[in-house]
Amino acid sequence: MTDQRFIIEMGMGNDLYGQDMTKAAASAIEDAIRHSSIPMFEALNISHDEMRVQVTVGVPDPAATDTEALKANLPRGRATVTAVQGGLSITNPDSGNVTTIATAAVEAFLPKQA
Rank of each mutant, 00 (worst) to 15 (best):
V55F: 08
K112A: 13
G58K: 05
T103I: 09
R5S: 09
K23C: 03
T82Q: 14
V106F: 12
S36D: 05
Q4L: 14
F6R: 04
E68P: 03
A72I: 04
G86E: 04
T67W: 05
K23R: 14
A104D: 06
G96E: 05
P39L: 02
G58P: 08
D20N: 15
Q19P: 01
A79R: 02
I8G: 05
A104W: 08
L74P: 02
I46F: 12
A64D: 13
L88D: 10
N14I: 02
G13P: 06
M21G: 05
P75E: 06
A24G: 08
G11M: 07
L110M: 12
H48N: 11
I7R: 14
K71T: 00
I38N: 11
G87V: 05
G96L: 04
E107D: 03
F109V: 02
Q19G: 00
K71F: 03
M51K: 03
Q54T: 10
D61N: 11
D15K: 04
E9A: 15
V57I: 01
F6P: 07
Q54S: 13
G77E: 06
T65R: 02
L16F: 12
A63Q: 13
G96T: 07
N92E: 13
M1E: 12
Q4W: 12
M12Q: 13
T100Q: 09
S27F: 12
M40R: 07
E107I: 04
N45Q: 13
L110N: 07
K71A: 10
H48A: 12
N92W: 10
H48I: 04
I8Y: 10
E107G: 08
E50Q: 15
L70E: 01
Q19F: 02
N73R: 13
T99K: 14
A72M: 00
D20E: 07
E68I: 05
F6E: 03
G58T: 06
K23W: 00
D15V: 04
A69D: 00
L74G: 02
R76L: 13
V81L: 09
R52L: 08
T65D: 00
L74T: 02
A69I: 03
T99Q: 15
S47E: 11
P111G: 02
S47W: 03
M40G: 01
E42C: 00
A28D: 08
L70S: 01
L88R: 14
I90A: 09
S95R: 08
Q113W: 12
V98H: 09
T2E: 15
D15M: 06
R52A: 11
S47L: 05
N14Y: 14
V98A: 10
E42G: 14
G11V: 06
G18W: 09
E107V: 01
L70K: 01
T56K: 11
T2H: 14
V106R: 02
G96S: 09
K23I: 08
A79S: 15
A108L: 05
I46H: 08
R5I: 12
I90G: 01
I33M: 08
R78F: 08
T56Y: 07
M51P: 01
A28R: 06
L70A: 05
T80K: 10
T22F: 09
Q54V: 14
E107P: 02
Q4E: 14
E50M: 14
Q54I: 12
V57D: 06
F109W: 15
G18Q: 04
A102P: 08
Y17C: 04
S47C: 01
D3Y: 15
I7Q: 08
S37R: 13
A79N: 11
